[in-house]
Design a protein around this nucleic acid. Structure first.
Lengths: 229, 229
DNA sequence: GTTCTAAATTGGTCGTGATTGGTTGCCTAC
DNA sequence: GTAGGCAACCAATCACGACCAATTTAGAAC
């Protein structure tokens, strides 16, 4: 696809640089070629190269100093984050749970502060749909939608985006070990009560209660998943 | 194919553009020709072309940015989740701050629970680099790296990924209005003390203190940005 | 062998001009 | 009178080159 010599999309230089480093087998502490040499090797402009180097520096992959050069960071922190699909292979269900416990209670708190009346209505509608689910699969989808509607209720598109990011990974992470001894969620399924508590807290504009209700809910989900909290 | 160059019915330009993209075999992420070139190729006016491009952008087919160009959307991405660049146009600095306040304290809490000794060392190294910054730009990069090293210290790649997602948007969000009346951060810049508090809390494995220290830090950043808390 | 100096090297910065998507306003055609 | 073509302008981005400051290297001077 490199038929055209003109610029491809901006991230191209970054990817080339990553490939170059990976192919070069650089050990931690090793020095990279000088910038003016790299732009020849990679065939990119210096500004594009330096932008990519900035990214790698922020990621902690490299370390630069005027007059000395650019070096691979001494501590191998394996902190290069792969793409979403790749990510889901490396995330354990426990880590997923910790991440949810980190993000979602805070989102619930924001929702309690900012939710519009309409958003509360949508929240209740999502709750009702989950309650009416006739099998576990649709319940999961509805539960999904319920949690997302809380992120939506924050009115903060960035928080919603963060939630979606988390959720995309969650859908793929393998936790099929969930015990389902009934064919559909029981009416007294504890989640329903917990959902109601969250909604009530949001409706009453009580950020602390919303935060705690969500945390409690996720803890009880965690308990069902892992056997205990 | 069109014998008459003059206008047919209004949607003509849109259809032509669709055909052009389909015929061009563009891969996701590829760049389209510039508008002023496309109007030559397609034989339509710029206003008609831009209207069509607007439609495609709303449909999520393409992605535009001033000074860069027009690109095919990288992945099929559910229409509900706008791309990162698109996102940054709709996120206000205030929303960004609320999102940081939602995520980063929780990350600091996780770091306090899970940070390895090595991770704490990397934390301190990042702190020292920021302290030694000689101008605001490198300070920002170092501060960035510091916050990221906290996410790294959680040992949870998903949390790190969430942080990166947030950070990618943060780099683009327009808050150039930040006041910088000195040419570099003063040694008594409050952030330095706050960074130290965070590190101390993580080192002492005190999740609550780490959470609060990060919240306080972000609050003071917010104060600097918006004038008050 | 030591010391000092000049040149070369390197990452960082700045300015200029070109390109790009976005905006505005005038003007024609219907 | 209104919609749309048309052109000029705006602001963001990038390539390119020159220059700057930190650092290393080489060699001259003694």
């Amino acid at each position: 696809m490199q038929g055209q010599p003109q610029t491809l999309y901006p991230n191209d230089a970054l990817q080339q640089l990553r490939d170059f480093i990976a192919a070069g087998n650089y050990a931690p502490g090793d020095r990279l070629p000088a910038e003016r040499q790299l732009i020849d090797t990679l065939g990119v402009t210096r500004s594009a190269l330096r932008k990519s180097l900035d990214t790698l520096e922020r990621e902690g992959v490299i370390w630069r100093h005027v007059g000395k050069g650019t070096f691979i960071t001494p501590h191998e922190s394996a902190s290069t984050v792969p793409g979403l699909a790749e990510l889901s292979h490396h995330v354990t269900p426990f880590q997923m749970m910790r991440a949810r416990l980190s993000l979602e209670p805070a989102i619930a708190r924001e929702a309690a502060v900012n939710a519009s009346a309409d958003a509360v209505l949508r929240l209740k509608a999502a709750r009702d749909r989950a309650f009416a689910a006739t099998n576990w699969d649709t319940y999961e989808a509805d539960d999904d939608a319920f949690h997302r509607s809380i992120a939506d209720a924050t009115g903060n598109i960035l928080l919603l985006s963060l939630f979606d990011h988390l959720n995309q990974v969650r859908r793929v992470v393998a936790w099929r070990q969930v015990i389902r001894n009934t064919d559909r969620p029981a009416r007294e399924h504890s989640s329903f009560k917990e959902h109601d508590l969250i909604i009530a807290a949001v409706e009453q504009r009580d950020p602390i209660a919303a935060h705690d209700a969500m945390r409690q809910h996720l803890n009880s989900v965690s308990k069902r998943l892992f056997g205990d909290g």
